[in-house]
Design a protein around this nucleic acid. Structure first.
Length: 891
RNA sequence: GGACGUUUAGCUCAGUUGGUUAGAGCGUUCGAUUCACAUUCGAAAGGUCGCAGGUUCGAAUCCUGCAACGUCCACCA
C-alpha cells in the first residue's frame, strides 16, 4: 500500500480478522512452535495460564471479555519477554447450569417434563447439542477478542482425558477414605431433583409467619416455628442449659399427639439455643435442618423424614397430610392447632428463604444417601507436600488448603481476599459431590448387592453403576493439571514444566467455588500448588453500578461493541481505570474515548510513516541504535529521556499486575509527550527521522499487550519482517542524566505561558506576534537554540531579547527563569493584573508555611535529605516568582 | 449477627512502603483550526481527600470511633 493512501481513521473492523488469522496460522499461539519463529524461544522458561473455562451455557459477556483482555495482556507481555507461553484454552460443561438451561429451553419448546419424556440418552443428546453450539460461539468470541491461545489444544471438562483424571482422583480419594457415602441432611432442589452444595444455595429475604404453639393441648413446652409442617419430624426439644423454666424437663422423654400423629420428643439442653428467642425452646427436626441435624447427632436423636424428594409430605406425616405440598400442610396444621387452642401467638417475621442459585426454586433440606468429600478427616499423604509435610504424614484437606496460602506459596491479589479465603476454609463443611442430574461425570462406583467398587469400567457381570453424576467443581478443581496431561504419564511428563501455572486470573465471585477447590485438588493429588499468583478482577457493571442483566436490559454485548469501536478499544476500556478486586462501571462513552486513542496512535504512526524518509526504519532488530549525531538537540534528549523512563516503569508495572497504571503512563507519554510535543517539534526542527522511528518502533511493542490489533497492523505496514507479537520487549539502552529533561522544561513552560497569555488576553491573534523578553544569558542561549520551536508552537513571528522590561508590559515566569514578555500591542492590563494578584495570593501562604517548616529543627533533622532539599529549591523558585509577580503588579 | 470492602473534582477513577502546593480521563467554560488526527489542538475553572479524634517534624495514606453505601458468609428455630 502506498503510505500516502493510508486512511485518515483506523478501521478496526476491516483489518482485525486478517490479523488474527495471521497470528493463528503463524503458530505463535502454540508454545511448541515459538522456537520456529524466533530462536530465543529455544529452551526458554515456560509461562502458563489456564483459561478459566467458560461455561457452555450460552455466550460470553463483558466479564469474560475483561478476563480475556487481562490474560491476553499477560500472555503477550511474557511472550515478548521471551518466555515459552502457554495459555491453555478450554470450556466447562457446567453440569447443573447447562442442564437447567436446556430443560428451560425444552419446556419452551412444549415439553412438560423433558427428562421423563425424552429419557436419559435422548435428553443428554439435546444437552450435548446445546453445549456444542455454545462452545462454538465461545471459541469464536475468544478469537474476536484477540485472545492469543491455540484452540487446537482445546480441553473440555467433560472429554475423555478429563474423565480419566476425574475417575483417577475419585479413586485416590476413595482409597484414602476422603470420599465416603453417607446418609446425611443435604440441600435438595425439588424442582430439578438434585442435591446442591452449600455454595450453590442462596438466601432470599422474605416475610414469614412465626407461629408459637404447643404440640398438643397437654404439652408443657411451647415452641415457635415458621415451618409447622416439618414438626411431624421433630424428635427433640432443645433448651438452653441455664434456662430455669425448662430445667425440670431436661433429659426427659415427652410424648405428644401432633395433629393426629404420635411423636416422641427428648428434651435436651444445648448452649446453642437462644433463651431469649421465642419461648426459649426449640423443636428439633433432625431430618430437615442442617443445624438440627448437628444437634441431633450430638444428642443422639432419631431422624424422621416428613418431606419427600418431590417436595411433598411423606407417609410419616400421617394419612391426612401425605401428598400435600408443604404450603398446604402448613395451612392445615395451623388451622388444626388453632381449633385445639394450642396456638399462643402468630407474628410476621423476616426470614431468609433457601433458594437454588440456578433456577431460583426453593430448596429443602432433607436426609439422603450421598457421596461426600471429607475435608476435616485425617489421611496419609501420598506426596511430599508444600515443603511442610512428607509422604505418609497425616493431615486434612482443610490444612492443605490453608497452608498453601498461609505460607505465601500462593499469593492472592488483592490480598484482602486472603482473609476471606481463610474464613471460608475454616468454616468449610464436608462437600457433597453427588448430583442427581444426568449431564456430567458419572460417579465411577459400581454396586452388586452389598459390595461397592470404584472403577472406570464395569467390573463384571451383575454390577450396576451409580446413576449420579459429580458436582461440576470436582472436575474443574483438577483443571490446572488435568489439562496438562495428568494422569497419562507420557503426556504429563511432556507438559509437566508448566505446573504450577504462573497466574490464575478470574473474577472474585468464584474464589470459593473454583479457586479454593483447585488448591484442594492440586495440593492433595500432586503435593504442589496449582498456581503462584491469583489475580482477582472485579465485576463489570453498567454505568449506574447495576449488575448487567437481561431483565434490566442493560447488558452490553462484546459482540456489539467490537464492530462499533474495535477490539482494542473494548479491551482498553476493560483494563484502564480499574484495579484488582474492584467492580467497574462501564459505559459506551468510555469505550468511545479509547477508540479515539486507538485512532490517535494510528495517526501518530501515519505521520511518522508519511513524513520521514524511505525506507523508513532499519528493519532488523538491533540495527536501529542511534548514532551520536542523532538525538543531539535539546528536544531529542528530552524525548529519549522521557521515553526510557516510561519504558522502564511500564515494564515494572505490568510485572506487578498494575495494568491500569502502566497503560495510563504509556498513554500520557504517547499522547502528551510524543504526539503533542515531539511530533510538533519535528515539523520545525528537521532531521528527526531516526528518533521518531526509534521511539515509535518501541512504543508499538509496549502497547501491543494492551491493543494487539492496531499495533500489529501498523507494524506490518511499516514492513517489519517479524510479527509484533513475537518481537522482543524493548530493553533499556539509553544513558540518561536527566539534564535534557530539565532544560526542556524551561522551553516547554515558556511556550505554555505564551499560549496561555494569548488565550487569556483575548487579543486579536494577529496582535500577538512579537514578544520581547528579558532573561539571563544562559537562558537566552537556551531559547535562541530552540527559537524555531518557540516561535512555531507559540505562534509568534518575532522574538526579541531586551535589557529590561518596558513599562506596562507583562512578565511571566518559567521555572527558575524570569522572563519579561513585551507584547507588541493590545494587552488588557486590568485583566492581567487581576490574574497576577490571584497568583500572588496563592503563592504567599505556601511560602509562609514552607519557610516555617524549614525553620522547624525537628523537621530538618528527621526528614530525608532529599525531601528537605527539594523543598528548599521549590521555595526559592516560589520566592523568585513572587518577586517577579509583584514587580509586574507595580508596572 | 459476623467478616470484608468503598467513601478523593460535576461524573468515572488513580494515588504500593507517610514526604514538594493531591493527579488523570470525561464533562464544563474560553480560545484555535489549510499543514498526521474535528476521533484534533491550547488554556482555564473545579477538591478543607465521608465525619470526629489520635500517632508523627509531616497523614488522602497509619491507629481508634462513627456514618453512608456495597459485597460475601451465617441464619433466630
Amino acid at each position: 500500500m502506498d503510505m500516502k493512501d493510508l486512511p485518515k481513521a483506523y478501521d478496526a473492523a476491516a483489518v482485525e480478522a486478517d490479523i488474527f488469522k495471521q497470528w493463528e496460522e503463524s503458530g505463535a499461539f502454540d508454545p511448541d512452535k515459538l522456537a520456529e519463529l524466533d530462536p530465543r524461544y529455544k529452551g526458554a522458561k515456560p509461562y502458563c495460564i489456564v483459561l478459566p473455562p467458560p461455561n457452555r451455557t450460552g455466550t460470553l459477556h463483558l466479564g469474560h471479555a475483561k478476563m480475556l483482555a487481562i490474560e491476553d495482556l499477560l500472555i503477550r507481555f511474557h511472550r515478548m519477554l521471551g518466555k515459552k507461553t502457554y495459555w491453555v484454552p478450554g470450556t466447562d460443561h457446567a453440569a447443573l447450569a447447562t442442564q437447567v438451561k436446556v430443560e428451560q429451553l425444552l419446556i419452551k419448546e412444549g415439553f412438560k417434563d423433558p427428562r421423563q419424556e425424552l429419557g436419559r440418552e435422548k435428553f443428554l443428546e439435546r444437552v450435548r447439542d446445546f453445549a456444542q453450539q455454545s462452545r462454538d460461539t465461545i471459541v469464536e468470541q475468544c478469537k474476536r477478542m484477540g485472545s492469543s491461545m491455540d484452540w487446537k489444544r482445546e480441553k473440555y471438562t467433560l472429554d475423555a482425558e478429563r474423565n480419566l483424571a476425574v475417575n483417577t482422583v475419585f479413586k485416590m480419594m476413595f482409597e484414602d477414605g476422603l470420599i465416603e457415602r453417607g446418609y446425611r441432611v443435604v440441600n435438595w432442589d425439588p424442582t430439578f431433583q438434585t442435591t446442591l452444595s452449600d455454595d450453590e444455595v442462596d438466601h432470599k429475604d422474605t416475610q414469614a409467619e412465626l407461629v408459637t404453639f404447643t404440640y398438643d393441648k397437654d404439652f408443657p413446652i411451647a415452641i415457635s416455628t415458621t415451618r409447622p409442617e416439618t414438626k411431624f419430624g421433630d424428635t427433640g426439644v432443645a433448651v438452653h442449659p441455664d434456662d430455669k423454666r425448662y430445667k425440670k424437663f431436661v433429659g426427659k422423654t415427652l410424648k405428644a399427639n401432633f395433629c393426629g400423629k404420635q411423636i416422641t420428643l427428648k428434651v435436651i439442653a444445648d448452649a446453642e439455643v437462644d433463651p431469649k428467642f421465642g419461648t426459649g425452646a426449640l423443636g428439633v427436626t433432625p431430618a430437615h435442618s442442617l443445624i438440627d441435624a448437628d444437634l441431633a447427632e450430638q444428642h443422639v436423636l432419631p431422624m424422621v423424614q416428613v418431606i419427600g424428594q418431590d417436595g411433598k409430605m411423606t407417609a410419616e406425616a400421617g394419612k391426612d397430610f401425605e401428598g400435600l405440598t408443604t404450603i398446604e400442610a402448613r395451612k392445615k396444621i395451623v388451622e388444626i392447632l388453632e381449633k385445639q387452642g394450642c396456638v399462643q401467638k402468630k407474628e410476621t417475621v423476616p426470614q431468609s428463604l433457601l433458594i437454588a442459585q440456578r433456577g431460583e426454586s426453593p430448596v429443602e433440606q432433607l436426609p439422603m444417601r450421598q457421596w461426600f468429600v471429607r475435608v476435616n478427616k485425617n489421611f496419609k499423604l501420598r506426596n511430599n507436600t508444600l515443603g511442610k509435610w512428607k509422604k505418609g504424614d497425616e493431615t486434612t484437606l482443610k490444612d492443605l488448603m490453608s497452608y498453601a496460602v498461609e505460607s505465601k506459596q500462593i499469593k492472592i491479589l488483592p490480598d484482602n481476599f486472603e482473609k476471606i479465603y481463610f474464613h471460608w476454609v475454616n468454616n468449610l463443611r464436608d462437600w457433597c459431590i453427588s448430583r442427581q442430574i444426568w449431564f456430567g461425570h458419572q460417579i465411577p462406583v459400581w454396586y452388586k448387592g452389598d459390595e461397592t467398587k470404584v472403577s472406570n469400567d464395569q467390573p463384571g457381570e451383575g454390577w450396576t453403576r451409580d446413576p449420579d453424576t459429580l458436582d461440576t467443581w470436582f472436575s474443574s478443581g483438577l483443571w490446572t493439571f488435568s489439562t496438562l496431561g495428568w494422569p497419562d504419564k507420557e503426556k504429563w511428563a511432556k507438559e509437566r514444566e508448566y505446573h504450577p501455572t504462573d497466574v490464575l486470573e478470574t473474577g472474585y465471585d468464584i474464589l470459593f467455588f473454583w479457586v479454593a477447590r483447585m488448591i484442594l485438588m492440586s495440593t492433595y493429588v500432586l503435593g504442589e500448588i496449582p498456581f503462584k499468583d491469583v489475580y482477582l478482577h472485579g465485576l463489570v457493571r453498567d454505568e449506574k453500578g447495576r449488575k448487567m442483566s437481561k431483565s434490566i436490559g442493560n447488558v452490553l454485548d462484546p459482540l456489539d461493541l467490537i464492530p462499533k469501536y474495535g477490539t482494542d478499544a473494548v479491551r482498553l476500556s476493560l483494563v484502564m481505570g480499574t484495579s484488582p478486586g474492584m467492580d467497574q462501571k462501564l459505559s459506551e462513552d468510555k469505550i468511545k474515548d479509547f477508540r479515539n486513542f486507538t485512532n490517535k496512535l494510528w495517526n501518530i504512526s501515519r505521520f511518522v510513516l508519511t513524513t520521514t524518509r524511505s525506507p523508513h526504519p532499519p528493519l532488523i532488530r538491533g540495527e536501529d541504535e542511534l548514532s551520536s549525531a542523532e538525538g543531539s538537540t535539546l528536544a531529542d534528549r528530552w524525548i529519549l529521556s522521557r521515553y526510557y523512563g516510561v519504558q522502564d516503569r511500564v515494564t515494572k508495572l505490568i510485572g506487578d499486575y498494575q495494568f491500569s497504571q502502566a497503560g495510563e503512563l504509556l498513554r500520557d507519554f504517547t499522547w502528551g509527550d510524543f504526539a503533542d510535543w515531539y511530533l510538533e517539534i519535528s515539523k520545525v526542527e528537521k532531521g528527526k527521522d531516526a528518533i521518531l522511528w526509534h521511539i515509535l518502533s518501541r512504543l508499538l511493542p509496549l502497547w501491543h499487550p494492551f491493543m494487539p490489533f492496531v499495533t500489529e497492523y501498523i507494524w506490518s505496514l511499516i514492513g517489519y519482517p517479524q510479527q509484533l507479537l513475537v518481537t522482543s520487549w524493548p530493553k533499556s539502552s539509553y544513558e540518561n542524566d536527566g539534564k535534557g529533561e530539565k532544560e526542556f522544561e524551561v522551553i516547554k513552560n515558556l511556550i505554555t505561558d505564551l499560549r496561555r497569555m494569548r488565550a487569556e488576553q483575548s487579543v486579536e491573534p494577529a496582535a500577538f506576534i512579537k514578544v520581547a523578553m528579558v532573561v539571563d544569558k544562559e537562558t537566552q542561549k537556551l531559547i535562541e537554540e530552540n527559537i524555531a520551536i518557540v516561535k512555531q508552537l507559540a505562534r509568534l513571528e518575532e522574538v526579541e531579547f531586551v535589557s529590561e522590561v518596558a513599562k506596562g508590559w507583562p512578565t511571566t515566569v518559567s521555572g527558575k527563569t524570569t522572563v519579561g514578555l513585551n507584547l507588541a500591542s493590545g494587552i488588557d492590563v486590568a485583566k492581567e493584573g487581576e490574574k497576577i494578584q490571584k497568583e500572588i495570593e496563592q503563592l504567599k501562604p505556601y511560602i509562609k508555611s514552607t519557610e516555617a517548616k524549614l525553620k522547624n529543627k525537628e523537621f530538618v533533622s528527621k526528614a530525608p535529605e532529599k525531601v528537605v532539599n527539594d523543598m528548599k529549591n521549590k521555595l526559592e523558585e516560589a520566592k523568585a516568582k513572587l518577586k517577579a509577580l509583584e514587580e509586574r503588579m507595580k508596572a
